[in-house]
Design a protein around this nucleic acid. Sequence first.
RNA 1: UCUCUAGUAGCUCAGUUGGUUAGAGCACCGGACUGUUAAUCCGGGUGUCGUUGGUUCAAGUCCAACCUGGAGAGCCA
Length: 506
Amino acid sequence: MYYISDLHSHIDQEVSLKGWVINSRSSKGIEFIVFRDGTGFLQCIVDENNVGSEVYELSKTLSQESSVEITGKVIKDERQIGGLELHVNNLKIINLTNNYPITNKSHGVQFLMDNRHLWLRSKRQWAIMRVRNSIIYAIHNFFQNEGFMQMDAPLFTGNAAEGSTTLFETEFYDRPAYLSQSGQLYGEAMAMAMGKIYTFGPTFRAEKSKTRRHLSEFWMIEPEMAFYDNEMNMNLIERFIKSVVSEVITRCSSELEVLERDVQFLQKVVETDFPRISYDDAVKVLNGVKEINGITSIDLLNKDLKAITEQIEQVNNDIVEREEILSDETLKQKKRNFIQNKIDILKNDLIDLQEKASHIPEWIKSAQNFKYGEDFGGSDETVLTRMFSLPIMVYNWPKDIKAFYMKRDDENPDLVKGVDVLAPEGFGEIVGGSERETDYDILLGRIREHKLPEDVFKWYLDLRDYGSVPHSGFGLGLERFVSWITNTKHIRETIPFPRMYGRLEP
RNA sequence: UCUCUAGUAGCUCAGUUGGUUAGAGCACCGGACUGUUAAUCCGGGUGUCGUUGGUUCAAGUCCAACCUGGAGAGCCA
């Protein structure tokens, strides 16, 4: 048995493939079958003169998503994606499909999500899942090569660890229990046993968030390193992200092509130092007080707004032009329908553009009014990364907006040594990390300040009693990372079966 | 939880200040065409207009409540 991904080494040979029909087109005496087998896509040509009328007639009955065994000769053809096609000699139908719901036309989000179990077969979803797999592989690869040990943190926890977030409550032998929102505290314990560890597991948050960046169940990677300060932590994060991106570029070139991902952009991420900016400076940038590359955030946003406004004008003119054509009453019905459809499409584009344009003034306002001491909102992150077009690292945060375990800054007790990595192009925070507080009394004080129950942190405080050492770590949200790498606007497409507010099936 | 927005054919949508029998494209079936890339062209029929109540001679269209989505805010990875 052969797979499409191996065919390059079988050019001009006869092979037999098993898979599914994506689509078929026909002309007189020739049938084009677009075929997939999970490893790739291939156009198969059934020529009546070549296969005879029996196989040719069979090929005409093939419907979308029918499963088939298909035999033929591999031929080089530059016109095709992948540069190959199959000249069919024989064909066997395994299962003939009727009325496959996802057609080769556009569908709405709800319909596709309701058919997620089938949607995963579609080309774009296929590509996203393949990239996700390569990212997972690259993450393990990186940490294993660096001498990290993978550990599994518990999913049942007895307490709402960091306080702020809402957790899913469940029952554990007649006691209330919560699904874990982070494995970090357990990771710290393990790092004191192993030196360098990382967790890779599911995480649960019960917030009723309805945005393109949130899931109720997502996967997180949380490394924790003994004897690392935040500087070393940031260096590791940067090397780590570059390593994973670089591996995806080499392993997933055809997937990135399907996704229409700008590989040059990713290549730049691998080759350029990530900008590192203190929270203080980030606030100045947002407020428009500090310039980056010779321009303030406010000026850059206004420039963006102007460009979008011009685009809107252009689309508007386009619509008016077509409507004028429609006013000709002698126009044939067919032609009229065609133009009307085009106008409807343009009107939808217009709505998108107008929505974009309407956001920018809000972003400007939010950025200008941003006050020192607040946490960045979604739009603030977009504005900050817009200034660099690279992932940026924001460090030295006000202690009041960060978790209790972060280490205070020696020079300014109001700051903690945390770091957030913001992905460019509006994909938001992909990494949150910090150096951890090592002093027993300060940590206990922070737990009390946050009004957290002391008794459940007793074991955690033990880590500061017995051989406490400087240590740091971070958490990477897998789906947000996949979103960014694959340029997928909504996080729900980056996990096979998303669990989010209002979605438990399929 | 709040703000905005939507629900019309299997799917994507149009439907004018309320007014005859609610329209397209696609999917599906048949036909034409020997290289198509969501092929194209010709022919074929499909509706509890989200639900309930109200206003009216008349409601897909107006009003109210509810249900279900989408975008954003908050929260965060």
